[in-house]
Design a protein around this nucleic acid. Structure first.
Length: 743
DNA sequence: AGCACGCCGACT
DNA sequence: GTCGGCGTGCTC
C-alpha cells in the first residue's frame, strides 16, 4: 500500500510513502499522518491511496505514524480542498491549514514567525568592506541597522530580494540576531458557552414562509444538489425558514451547517438558534474565530464523530467535518465578511455552494439584498429564487419617490442641493418630531463628469463606464482600459457650458439643511467623524434617543442600526455612486439604501424614501419605479449588464512569487483565452501597464494590469486582469468569481 | 521551510 | 589552487 502525502512542511509537493502493515487497516485518504522528510518528521495529509508514483519505488520511505484513527477530512472535504487549491490559486498546504484546526493537526506547527534584528552596529569601514565582499549582506545589514524593531524575516527576504543564505552568513558572524516568536491566538472567554440557552417556541409560519419551507423541503428530500436563494425583505422571517429546514434535516438524521457573518454571530443569535436545536435534543456546535484551541478541538471532534450534527458558525464553519451533510444555510449571503482576507483567500458563500454540490446537499442562501452574482445565477436558472415580500410584523414597506433634479435646476436657475419635495418632507417630519436620514454617496474618490442640464455622462467608448475627471491635467480617464482624452468645455450632448463639476460634500448638504430647517438639530457622520470613535457612537445614540432631528451621513449609517423614529430617508445624489466604475461599489450603495430604507417608517405608517437624480431613467433608480423591493433585483441586474463583465469574472487577481512579470503575462494570456471562450468572440489583450510603486502601510506594492477588450462591438466586453503584487511579499488576491460558472 | 550542491569571483 | 558568497533545486 502506497499513499500520496501532502506534507505540512512549507512546500507544495505530493510525496509518496509506503504504509506499514500495522497502519494499513486504518489509513485512508484524508488521514493525518507523520512522515519522514530528509532527517526530520513532519505532519502530512494523505491525499491519495495507491496513486501513480513518479519516483523509483525503492526510494520510498515509510509512514511513521497516524494522528487519529479516523480521517481528518471527509471525502467531500478532500475534493473541496483540491478544488480550492486550483480555484483560489492557493497553496495546498494553506488550504489544508484553513480546513483543519491547529489543535487537530497535533499542535505540531504552532504558527511561528522569525524576526531579524541587528546585533552589532558596524562601523563605516566595516560596512564598506562588506559591500565589496558581500553586497547582499551589506544591503541587509544597512537595512537592519536602521530598524528600531526586529523585522519579519520572510518579509525582509523578499523585499530586499536576498536569500536565507545571506541571513545565515550574518548570523554566523554575529552581526544579526534571529529570534522566533510564537503567534498565539488569543483565546477569549467563551461568552456563548455560559450564556443561557433559551428554548424558543417556534412561531407559526405565515403563508409565504410555509410555501418556501415546502419548496426547500422538496429539495432536501430529493437528496440532490440544489441552491435556493431566499430573498426576503427586512423582518420577513427568513430565520424561521432556515430553522425549519435545519430541523427537517436533523429529524431525518442528516447534518447541517449554518453560516452567519462573523459580526452577526452575537450571543443573542447563538442562544436563539441553540435553544431551538437543543430543545429537540440536538447538540449544537458554535464555531468562530475567538474559540480557544481546546474549544475548537472539542467542537471539531464532536462533529467528526457524529455526536453533534449541527454547527452554527462564521466563515470557516463551512469546513466542519460533519457526516452526511444535507444542508448548508448561508445567512446574509451578500456580506463581504464571507471573504477571507488572508491566504487562502476564499469566499465562504461560494465554498458553501461548491461543498453542497460535492455532498449532493441543498444550499440555502438568504438575504434582504442578495448579491449580484446570486441574482445572476437565479437568472441563469442555476439557483431557485424564493421570495418573502411581507414583513412578519406587518410593518409597511416604504414609498419611493424620484425627483428629477434637472427640473429642479431649471426651476431655481441655479445650484440645487435639496429638491423642493425633499425639503417639504423634511419640514413636515420636523414639525411632527420625526427624524430624517440624508444619505450621501461618496464612495470612491473619483468624480465623473455629468451635465447638470441634460444629465449626460461622459463614458468610455470601449467600456461603457463613466470616465473619471482629473482636475490636475484637465483630462478624462477610463479607469478600466486607460483610455484618455481632454475634458470637454461644454456638454457633448446638449452643448451646455460648464459641465465640469460633480460630487457633493457633506458640508454643503449640511449648509443647505441649515438654511431650510434653521432650528433643527443636525449631525454629520462621515469619515472625519469616524476618526473619533466615541464621537460616532455618541451621535448614533443621540439620534436614537431623539436628540438629533436630521442625520447626514455617508456609508456607515446603514449597518445594523435600528432607528425607530425615522420616517424619511433621502438619497441626495443617486447618480454619483452609479458612475463609479466598480460594480461592487454600486452594489454596496444599493444594499445600504435598502437597509436604511427598510427601517424607515413606524408601526403605524410607511416611511418614505426620496431619491434625487439627474438621470431618472438610469439604472440607479430603476428599482424605485416599482416602489418595492422586488424592483431592486431588476435594478441590480441592469447594473450588472451595463458594465458587461462577461462571465462574471470581473476581477482576476493572482499571486505571484515575487514581482515576476513573465508569470503575470502568462496568467493574463490564460485568462484572455478563457474570456474568449466564454464570449465566443475574439478578445484582444492589452498591456502591460505597471502602476507606480506605492507604499501601503509598511509594505510596497505595485500592480501590473492587463485588459481584455473584445473586438466585436456586439458585446462591449471588458475584463480587467489585474495582477496585484504586494511587493515583494507573495499575494493572492480574492478571486471574485462565481463558482457556478466553473462547474 | 531547511539544506546540500555547485558556480563564481577574490585572495592568503 | 582554496574560500566565502549566493542562487538553485530537492525533499518520497
Amino acid at each position: 500500500m502506497i499513499v500520496g502525502v501532502q506534507p505540512l512542511a512549507g512546500f507544495d509537493k505530493l510525496l509518496h510513502y509506503k504504509v506499514p502493515e500495522t497502519l494499513r487497516a486504518s489509513i485512508r485518504a484524508g488521514s493525518l499522518v507523520r512522515v519522514p522528510i530528509l532527517n526530520q518528521h513532519k505532519v502530512g495529509l494523505v491525499m491519495e491511496v495507491n496513486g501513480v508514483v513518479d519516483v523509483p519505488l525503492e526510494k520510498l520511505k515509510t509512514v511513521s505514524g497516524l494522528l487519529q484513527d479516523y480521517p481528518a477530512l471527509t471525502p467531500d472535504l478532500l475534493t473541496l480542498a483540491k478544488w480550492m487549491h486550483g480555484y483560489y490559486a492557493a497553496r495546498m498546504e494553506s488550504v489544508l491549514e484553513a480546513m483543519i484546526p491547529g489543535a487537530v493537526r497535533d499542535g505540531t506547527r504552532l504558527k511561528q514567525e522569525k524576526y531579524l534584528s541587528a546585533a552589532h552596529k558596524p562601523t563605516t569601514e566595516e560596512l564598506a568592506a562588506l559591500r565589496k565582499k558581500a553586497p547582499q549582506q551589506s544591503r541587509l545589514m544597512e537595512f537592519l541597522a536602521h530598524q528600531f524593531q526586529p523585522a519579519k524575516k520572510s518579509l525582509l527576504l523578499s523585499r530586499l530580494a536576498v536569500t536565507a543564505a545571506v541571513v545565515n552568513a550574518l548570523v554566523k558572524r554575529g552581526w544579526v540576531r534571529e529570534e522566533v516568536r510564537h503567534v498565539e491566538r488569543v483565546a477569549y472567554a467563551d461568552q456563548w458557552a455560559t450564556g443561557e440557552v433559551v428554548a424558543t417556541q417556534p412561531p407559526k409560519l405565515n403563508e409565504e414562509q410555509a410555501t418556501i419551507v415546502t419548496s426547500v423541503g422538496a429539495s432536501l428530500d430529493k437528496g440532490k444538489f440544489a441552491v435556493h436563494l431566499l430573498h426576503g425583505v427586512t423582518g420577513s422571517g427568513k430565520t424561521e425558514v432556515y430553522l425549519h429546514a435545519v430541523e427537517r434535516v436533523l429529524a431525518a438524521g442528516g447534518s447541517a451547517i449554518y453560516l452567519v457573518p462573523e459580526v452577526a454571530l452575537t450571543p443573542q443569535t447563538v442562544a436563539r438558534l441553540r435553544g431551538r436545536f437543543e430543545a429537540a435534543g440536538h447538540r449544537t456546535v458554535v464555531w468562530h474565530s475567538h474559540l480557544s484551541e481546546g474549544e475548537r478541538l472539542d467542537g471539531w471532534t464532536a462533529l467528526a464523530s457524529g455526536q453533534a450534527r449541527v454547527v452554527v458558525g462564521a466563515r470557516s464553519a463551512v469546513f466542519a467535518p460533519v457526516r452526511d451533510l444535507r444542508l448548508i444555510v448561508v445567512d446574509e449571503e451578500h456580506e463581504p465578511a464571507y471573504k477571507q482576507d488572508e491566504t487562502p483567500r476564499y469566499h465562504g458563500r461560494d465554498v458553501a455552494v461548491y461543498r453542497a454540490k460535492l455532498a449532493n446537499a441543498t444550499c440555502l442562501l438568504g438575504s434582504a439584498t442578495p448579491s449580484l452574482e446570486s441574482f445572476s445565477n437565479v437568472r441563469n436558472g442555476r439557483y431557485r429564487l424564493d421570495v418573502l415580500t411581507k414583513r412578519v410584523d406587518d410593518k409597511q414597506l416604504p414609498d419611493f419617490q424620484i425627483v428629477d433634479m434637472r427640473i429642479e435646476v431649471m426651476r431655481t436657475r441655479g445650484l440645487v442641493t435639496l429638491s423642493r419635495l425633499l425639503v417639504n418632507h423634511m419640514q413636515a417630519r420636523f414639525e411632527r418630531k420625526e427624524q430624517t436620514i440624508l444619505f450621501i454617496n461618496r464612495r470612491g474618490y473619483s468624480s465623473s463628469m455629468q451635465c447638470r442640464k441634460c444629465g449626460h455622462v461622459e463614458e468610455c467608448p470601449h467600456c461603457s463606464v463613466a470616465m473619471t475627471y482629473h482636475r490636475a491635467d484637465e483630462t478624462l480617464k477610463c479607469h478600466l482600459c486607460g483610455h484618455e482624452r481632454g475634458a470637454p468645455a461644454v456638454c457633448p450632448s446638449c452643448a451646455a457650458p460648464d459641465i465640469r463639476w460633480r460630487g457633493l460634500g457633506t458640508q454643503r448638504v449640511e449648509e443647505a439643511v441649515r438654511r431650510v430647517l434653521p432650528r433643527a438639530r443636525l449631525e454629520r457622520v462621515d469619515t472625519d467623524t469616524m476618526a473619533k470613535r466615541h464621537r460616532f457612537r455618541e451621535i448614533l445614540s443621540d439620534f436614537r434617543t431623539g436628540k438629533i432631528d436630521v442625520l447626514i451621513g455617508t456609508q456607515m449609517i446603514g449597518k445594523g442600526l435600528d432607528f425607530p423614529n425615522v420616517t424619511l430617508v433621502g438619497l441626495v445624489d443617486a447618480d454619483l455612486s452609479m458612475h463609479v466604475p466598480d460594480f461592487r461599489a454600486n452594489e454596496r450603495t444599493f444594499q445600504l439604501l435598502v437597509q436604511v430604507a427598510g427601517r424607515a417608517g413606524r408601526g403605524d405608517r410607511a416611511g418614505e424614501v426620496v431619491v434625487q437624480t439627474f438621470t431618472p431613467k438610469a439604472d440607479a433608480v430603476q428599482f424605485a419605479k416599482n416602489a418595492d423591493f422586488n424592483g431592486f433585483a431588476e435594478a441590480e441586474l441592469h447594473v450588472r449588464h451595463r458594465f458587461q463583465y462577461p462571465p462574471y469574472r470581473h476581477l482576476i487577481h493572482h499571486l505571484f512569487r515575487g514581482p515576476n512579470p513573465e508569470k503575470i503575462k502568462f496568467f493574463a494570456e490564460h485568462w484572455a483565452k478563457e474570456v474568449e471562450k466564454a464570449l465566443g468572440n475574439t478578445v484582444e489583450l492589452r498591456g502591460p501597464t505597471p502602476s507606480p510603486i506605492e507604499k501601503v502601510k509598511d509594505e510596497y506594492r505595485y500592480q501590473i494590469w492587463y485588459f481584455c477588450a473584445s473586438a466585436a462591438k456586439v458585446v462591449p466586453a471588458l475584463v480587467k486582469l489585474q495582477a496585484t503584487v504586494k511587493w515583494p511579499e507573495d499575494v493572492f488576491q480574492v478571486l471574485d468569481v462565481d463558482p457556478m460558472s466553473l462547474m
